[in-house]
Amino acid sequence: MTSYRQHCPVSAAAEVLGQSWTILVVRELLHGNSRVSEIARGVPDMSSALLARRLKQLAEAGVVTRLTSTGEGRFALTQAGRDLAPVIEHLGHWGRRWTPPPRSGDLKPNLLLLDICRGIDPARLPREKVSLHLRFAEAPPPRWWWLVLSPEGASSTDTDPRLPAVARIDCTVSALAGVWLGHRTWQEILAERTIRFDGTREAVRNTIGWLGRSRFTGSAPMVSASNRMTEQQFD
Rank of each mutant, 00 (worst) to 15 (best):
G71F: 05
I208V: 09
L147T: 00
D160N: 08
W180G: 01
E128K: 13
T65C: 13
G218W: 07
V10T: 13
E138A: 09
A52H: 09
W94H: 15
H7P: 09
I120L: 05
R127M: 14
R184E: 12
L55I: 07
D160L: 02
M1Y: 09
G105E: 14
A85Q: 13
H183D: 12
A137Q: 11
L91G: 11
L113W: 01
P102D: 02
G42M: 01
R201S: 11
A76L: 09
L58M: 07
E60N: 13
W145S: 00
L51A: 00
M222W: 09
G95F: 15
L50N: 13
Q187W: 10
S3Y: 08
P122Y: 01
D45K: 15
H7Q: 15
V63R: 07
E15Y: 05
E89P: 07
T70N: 14
P86K: 07
P9T: 10
I120K: 01
G119W: 02
A85T: 12
W144Y: 14
W146E: 01
A13Q: 15
P122I: 00
P151G: 02
R215G: 09
V16G: 05
S34D: 09
G32S: 03
G153T: 03
P126M: 06
A80W: 05
A123N: 11
G18H: 05
G209L: 01
N110D: 14
W180C: 01
I208Y: 04
L113M: 02
M1E: 11
N206V: 08
T70F: 13
R184C: 10
A225K: 12
S47H: 11
T70W: 11
S3T: 13
N227T: 14
W94D: 15
Q232H: 12
V64N: 04
S155P: 06
R82M: 10
R162W: 06
P122W: 01
G153C: 02
E15I: 03
I169K: 05
T65K: 12
A137M: 08
W98P: 06
T217G: 05
S48G: 14
S156V: 06
S20F: 05
V36Q: 13
W145K: 00
G95D: 15
V204C: 07
A167S: 07
A13K: 10
V223E: 04
A52C: 09
D45C: 14
W94N: 15
P9G: 07
G182I: 03
P151S: 01
V179W: 01
R201P: 07
R74G: 01
G218D: 08
W98M: 15
E28C: 06
D106G: 09
A52P: 06
V26W: 04
S214I: 02
V223D: 03
L50E: 13
W94Y: 15
R143Q: 10
R53M: 09
A177S: 11
R196L: 08
R143Y: 06
A80P: 04
E138V: 04
